[in-house]
């Protein structure tokens, strides 16, 4: 058996292309290249329009290269008072960073408890989290959530779009999996024998070991929360929006001013592009790791 498998890759499977099912044919490469182009085009198109004028935007045939009006267009977005774009951008940064930091901390705490501590009701509680991951809480509870915000006097404030997002079942699940795989049971036991308290173990043993998992969770939470649209649109006012709400107002109020809308849109995804460029490898890795475990 070993002889066969050792011979095969060198001999037939790799040498004779038709036999190797993992050889990328030219057709595969063309298809992949085409897909990447298709994936990139709308983003490229956004940049083209954002850097041109409105008369270019309706040209026939359409422009296929970026123009030189980006700076001036950005100025125009920032000066469009009814969009409150800068406020929106700033608000989104505040909301998303707060949510990301606390989701990661809460999930790391709970993940440690579920993966490495023994307590009554552990499986039941973890099961309940998995179950609620299936429920679209935001859509289901939207009316009472709104009434709750009214009675707390939080409508129109950032608290209303931060607090409901602090809980994230997916995060807890992910950190449970990660802790389980990254921290050997014996390590926790050894620390325990040395007399370390549970919180001390969390700080000195767990935290250093699960840092890569925390980073992936942070990236995913950031991208997910930056995207949030329905709830902020309902509970925030046009004067104090998140960036998504701001560009949706921009679209509604300036329907034919494509350049203005596209420049706002391009600015709104800028933080995501920065995150993607800086951490693309980790994002792919994190997605693939999470997928196998789920």
């Amino acid at each position: 058996m070993t002889a066969i498998t050792r011979v095969r890759p060198a001999g037939r499977a790799r040498g004779d292309g038709k036999r190797d099912p993992f050889r990328a044919t030219p057709l595969t490469k063309i298809a992949l290249g085409f897909t990447v182009l298709l994936s990139a085009f709308p983003i490229y198109w956004m940049i083209i329009i954002a850097s041109r004028t409105n008369s270019d935007a309706v040209d026939v045939p359409p422009p296929l290269l970026p123009g030189g009006n980006l700076g001036e267009n950005v100025q125009r977005v920032l000066n469009t008072e009814d969009a409150h774009f800068l406020t929106g951008l700033l608000n989104s940064l505040i909301v998303t960073s707060t949510v990301t930091v606390s989701v990661v901390i809460i999930s790391t705490f709970a993940g440690f408890a579920f993966a490495r501590l023994h307590f009554r009701g552990r499986n039941l509680l973890l099961g309940s989290i998995l179950l609620t991951m299936m429920v679209p809480l935001q859509q289901m509870g939207i009316v009472p959530l709104y009434q709750l915000m009214v009675s707390l006097g939080w409508v129109g404030t950032l608290k209303a779009v931060i607090l409901p997002y602090l809980l994230n079942g997916f995060g807890v699940f992910m950190m449970t999996q990660y802790t389980d795989q990254a921290v050997p049971e014996e390590l926790v036991e050894a620390a325990r024998v040395d007399g370390a308290s549970t919180l001390r173990i969390w700080w000195n043993v767990i935290l250093p070991a699960v840092r890569p998992g925390m980073a992936v969770l942070a990236l995913q939470t950031f991208m997910l929360n930056w995207n949030e649209f329905m709830w902020p649109m309902i509970v925030l006012t046009p004067e104090n929006p998140t960036v998504q709400v701001s560009i949706s107002f921009l679209t509604a109020a300036h329907t034919t001013d494509y350049v203005l809308i596209f420049t706002g849109t391009a600015l709104s995804v800028l933080p995501l592009i920065v995150v993607f460029v800086a951490f693309g490898r980790q994002i792919v890795g994190g997605l693939m790791e999470g997928a196998v475990k789920a």
């Binding site: 992949l32 897909t35 990447v36 994936s39 990139a40 709308p42 983003i43 198109w45 956004m46 329009i49 991208m223 930056w226 995207n227 649209f229 998504q244 560009i247 949706s248 679209t251 494509y258 809308i261 596209f262 849109t265 391009a266 709104s268 995804v269 995501l272 592009i273 995150v275 993607f276 693309g280 490898r281 994002i283 792919v284 997605l287």
Partner: peptide, 23 residues
């Protein structure tokens, strides 16, 4: 190639909708 096919994730849902609506 992997990053290439994931590129659409760097846009927000609202941004996608705005660009496609114009297209």
């Amino acid at each position: 190639f992997r990053l290439g096919v994931l590129l659409p994730l760097v846009t927000s849902v609202v941004a996608v909708a705005i660009v496609f609506t114009q297209l």
